[in-house]
């Protein structure tokens, strides 16, 4: 059966978040939600505003994944990081341009957009968010 994730409209709808980290911030409690929301999942308010997250944050923790899920078989092992963005929002995503020895808990990371996977059937490239140690200035 064709996985949901290889259907072009599925990823197309996600563009604001997986390309730019755009979502909805609750005007009452300040909680950030990826993509569109009509009700704040934390406080229940219905006043939410569109916002784009800042690109930077810090690394809370990471893991080296050896057992891939479908579509990621050719890129194992890969790193997955738990990051806290500058506004306090927690996200998880793959880490790129680094090896485990380059990582330190608490280090500054930045969001980048990379090729996440290529769909096997349609050969469609799925681009989206990954994180990497901040390229130092």
């Amino acid at each position: 059966m064709k996985p949901l994730t290889s259907r072009p409209p599925f990823y197309w709808r996600l563009r604001p978040f997986i390309y730019r980290l755009e979502g909805s911030r609750c005007s009452v409690c300040g909680h950030f939600h990826p993509l569109n929301r009509v009700v704040c999942r934390r406080c229940g308010s219905r006043t939410l505003e569109r916002e784009r997250l800042n690109n930077a944050g810090r690394l809370v923790n990471y893991t080296v994944v050896h057992q891939a899920q479908e579509g990621f078989e050719k890129t194992t092992p890969y790193l997955v990081g738990w990051v806290e963005m500058d506004d306090g929002t927690n996200l998880v995503g793959q880490l790129t341009d680094c090896d485990p020895q380059d990582l330190k808990v608490g280090m500054t990371i930045e969001m980048v957009v990379r090729k996440l996977r290529v769909d096997g059937d349609s050969n469609l490239i799925v681009y989206g968010v990954k994180f990497r140690p901040l390229v130092q200035r």
């Binding site: 050719k74 890129t75 790129t96 341009d97 980048v112 957009v113 990379r114 090729k115 490239i125 681009y127």
Partner: peptide
């Protein structure tokens, strides 16, 4: 370019 990079991702960077 790394495994997850191409002309688009580098152009964006």
């Amino acid at each position: 370019a790394g495994l997850d990079e191409d002309t688009v991702t580098m152009a964006v960077e």
